[in-house]
Amino acid sequence: MSDSLDDYIDAVAAALSLPIDAAWKPAVKMNLEVSLRMARLVDEFPLPDESETADIYVA
């Protein structure tokens, strides 16, 4: 997965015209790995079909 994350970071940076210094790439990769781990936890959390969405509050 590591190599694919490096490729993903390079592709997204190019698509957004966002230069990423080589010294920062390990930190970017680490943050992406943490974000993906948290997203996986949320995605795998079982919710019953009867669950209702939360109310929307507007200030």
Score class of each variant (00 low, 15 high):
8 Y>P: 00
50 E>Y: 05
15 A>W: 02
13 A>I: 04
37 R>S: 05
12 V>N: 01
37 R>E: 05
40 R>V: 07
32 L>I: 12
8 Y>E: 09
59 A>R: 11
25 K>S: 05
8 Y>H: 10
17 S>M: 06
35 S>I: 01
17 S>E: 15
14 A>Y: 03
22 A>Y: 04
46 P>F: 07
19 P>F: 03
56 I>E: 11
48 P>I: 02
52 E>D: 06
4 S>A: 15
33 E>G: 02
57 Y>C: 07
43 D>A: 09
49 D>C: 01
38 M>W: 03
34 V>N: 10
52 E>C: 05
29 K>Q: 13
7 D>H: 10
50 E>K: 09
5 L>Q: 14
45 F>L: 12
58 V>E: 15
22 A>R: 10
17 S>H: 09
2 S>R: 09
34 V>I: 15
57 Y>I: 14
41 L>E: 12
29 K>G: 03
30 M>N: 06
36 L>I: 15
3 D>M: 13
30 M>G: 04
7 D>C: 02
33 E>P: 00
33 E>M: 06
29 K>R: 15
25 K>T: 12
14 A>K: 11
20 I>N: 07
4 S>H: 12
4 S>F: 14
3 D>G: 14
24 W>E: 15
31 N>M: 04
15 A>Y: 02
40 R>K: 12
58 V>H: 13
40 R>C: 05
19 P>H: 09
41 L>P: 00
1 M>I: 05
32 L>D: 01
